[in-house]
Structure formats: structure tokens, C-alpha cells
Design a protein around this nucleic acid. Structure first.
Lengths: 201, 201
DNA sequence: GTCTATATCATGATAGAC
DNA sequence: GTCTATCATGATATAGAC
């Protein structure tokens, strides 16, 4: 029936909010039902149990978090361009999904090995290292060493992700109100690109 | 008796490990007792309940995370020196307490306002902003604007903290084994200082 | 598909013997 | 101070009426 998708969709949206806020262990099925404005029993009609509902949410989230990085890393762009593109695209992507990094990193660290084998293909292991390797040494003038590139990559994702992970604390210690946090974040795309340029000099 | 402190100490250590790994909601009193190798009933002899045990752990953690930042921000050093000092001291501090940022930030984001009023004095609000304000404009040559300083401060704590928060994911995608993560982190103090110099140019 | 009632289970907490 | 046994609660999960 028509109601099918509608109800399931409401549940998925509510579950995402609840899991993002409280984590798997802290989330309550009753709270999800309340947010979705459906009966608690319905959750079990659409999803086998809490775990499978969580999986539906989490697997999508982890894919979203990775999906923007890998195509750029895999591309044949020169290193400098890669990092500029990453800065641009990833800041945009995260600003539209600001809860993603906190959620995914928080849950992964509670049980890393389980999450890796449940949500990531075995061949994903070491993928970033391979992509940062100096495969195209025919490239122009100054090469960047692999070790340096590792650090630059860490610098980049750090500057993009951490403010969202530490958002409440930043808002508190900077006494940010209303939309101020988002304003600062909107400046960050340009800022981080500038920084990356300076760093790689 | 002599056993007092010893047992309580074992419980505190075990509780810290369990809470850091699983968070407040995910931690189990039985697991804490097992780690401490004491009977579960003893937890309630030394601490009223799970919440008060958590408070003992968390309040210390949040103080540790802040204690290194504020003395430096409050000092009368020129801006450039402040950031260099922060890079040096904070990387060292975090490398000795690598679980701290993940734990504190993770728990705070589950219920920000509650944590702030329970663990931070009201006058702490906006403290960082005040300290970054251009109070000593008598200072040498080039001033840094307050807005820029906010970004530099975010850059700095991002580069220091995020690798530890994302550690499992980084180890996975870079296929790091054994001590490799710590080796990379040991290079970071110098790296971040270099980066901050370039950025503030 | 939706709802109510209830079974089952896990876990935090307590009481009391030693 | 330490241990065992037990309780009480709250949350997930199921059965079955509508």
C-alpha cells in the first residue's frame, strides 16, 4: 500500500536522528517511535530488531562519509590539485551533513574490528595509502614525499571534520549564538584551501 | 584499611577504560568489575551508582583536556608564540592521553547543555573568545585579526586532536600496523609547528 | 498495516551473610 | 570490605486482535 514507504521513511528519518544523537547503546526504540509519531510495535514490523535498524542507518552514513573522498583520491590529478579539490568538495559535503563524522567515528571506535568486517570490504584496507603512493612520478617538478602526503592528508581531514565533532564545545568556549557557528564554517572552505596552499609550498 | 585505596583505585582505572571505550550508555558495571577483578557489588560500596562513578571519571577527563590550553591562552605571549606553544605542549599532552578527546567530545555531544552546567563553571562560557581578542594591540608589527585567529585556533586543535579521534579509521585506510600510528603521531609535533608558522605568515 | 498487551531479558541496584 | 543472592526497572521483542 501507499502507506508502506511513507511510514518506513518516517521511521528511518527518526532513527537517524536518534542514533546520531545518542549512539547505538544510548538510543531508545521508544524515542525513535515517538519522533516518527508511529507505534513502537511498528518498528519491529519494518525492521527485525534494533540492530538491523541501526545497520540501515549506519551503513548509509559510512558510505556517505567515504563516497566523496575516494573518487578524488583515485583520480589522476596532480597531488596539489587533489588536495585542493578535496578541501573544496569535502567541506561542502560535510557542511550539508554535519552530524556524519561524529556519528560514524564515534560508533566505529566502540568496536573497530566488528565495524570494519561488517561495513567495509576487505580490499578497502590500506586503500588511502595506495592512493597517496607516488605512482605517477613522471609528474611535474617538485614531488611530495609519501610521508609528507600522509601528514597533509591528515591535516586536511582534521581541519574539515573536527569543528563539527567538537561543535558544542566550540560554541560554548567561543560563546557562539544562533547562526554564528555556521557563518564561521561557511568561511572555512576558502580558508582551508588557502591553508593547504601555504602548507604544500 | 590498606585495601581501601587499592581497591578503589583498581575500580577507577577499570571504569576509565570501560567508559572511554563504550561511553556512559554502553558501559556495563559487570564489565568494569571484571576489568578491575573485583566483585560487582563492590562498585556500589565505593560509588553510589553508575552515574557517580562516571562523574568521577569524566570530570577529571574534562579538566585534563582543558588544563593545558587555558594557561597558554591566558598568558601575555604574542599571538604567534601562543600558537607555537600550544602546538608543542598540546601535542605532547594528548599523545600521553590519547583517549581523552574522543571520550570527552563524544559524551558532551550526547547532551551538551547538561554537561556544561554539570562540569563547567558559568564563567567559562566564551572564555576562548575573550582570550583571542586583540587586547594587546601595542604589540609588534603585524596584527592578526580576531576572525583569523579563530580559524587558526580551530586549525590547530583540529590537527592535534582529530587523528586520535579517527585513529581506528586511519589505521584501517592506511593499513598501519603495530606501532606505526604512534610513529606518525610522534612526527606531528614538529609538523604542526611548521604548518602553523606557514599558515600565520 | 497498525495497535495493545505481554513475555523475555539484561542490567543496575540492594540486602544481608560472612 | 567482600561476596552471593535477589530484586526492581526498563527496554527489546513477540503474539495476537483489529
Amino acid at each position: 500500500m501507499a502507506k508502506d514507504n511513507e511510514t518506513e521513511e518516517k521511521i528511518l528519518i527518526a532513527a537517524r536522528l536518534e542514533f546520531q544523537e545518542k549512539g547505538l547503546a544510548g538510543a531508545r526504540m521508544q524515542a525513535i517511535a515517538d519522533r516518527a509519531e508511529v507505534n513502537k510495535g511498528l518498528l519491529h514490523y519494518y525492521f527485525k530488531n534494533k540492530d538491523s535498524l541501526f545497520n540501515a542507518i549506519f551503513s548509509k552514513a559510512i558510505r556517505q562519509l567515504m563516497a566523496e573522498i575516494f573518487p578524488i583520491l583515485e583520480s589522476k590529478l596532480p597531488d596539489y590539485e587533489k588536495f585542493q579539490r578535496l578541501a573544496e568538495r569535502y567541506t561542502e559535503h560535510i557542511s550539508k551533513n554535519p552530524e556524519l563524522p561524529k556519528f560514524v567515528l564515534g560508533e566505529i571506535s566502540k568496536n573497530p574490528q566488528e565495524f570494519f568486517q561488517r561495513f567495509l570490504p576487505e580490499n578497502a584496507k590500506g586503500a588511502a595509502r595506495k592512493m597517496l603512493d607516488n605512482q605517477q612520478s613522471e609528474q611535474a617538478g617538485q614531488e611530495i614525499s609519501v610521508v609528507d602526503k600522509q601528514h597533509y592528508f591528515l591535516d586536511l581531514i582534521s581541519m574539515v571534520l573536527l569543528p563539527y565533532i567538537a561543535r558544542p564545545l566550540i560554541e560554548f568556549f567561543f560563546a557562539l549564538e544562533g547562526n554564528e557557528f555556521n557563518q564561521i564554517m561557511s568561511e572555512r572552505k576558502t580558508h582551508i584551501q588557502t591553508v593547504m596552499t601555504k602548507i604544500m609550498k
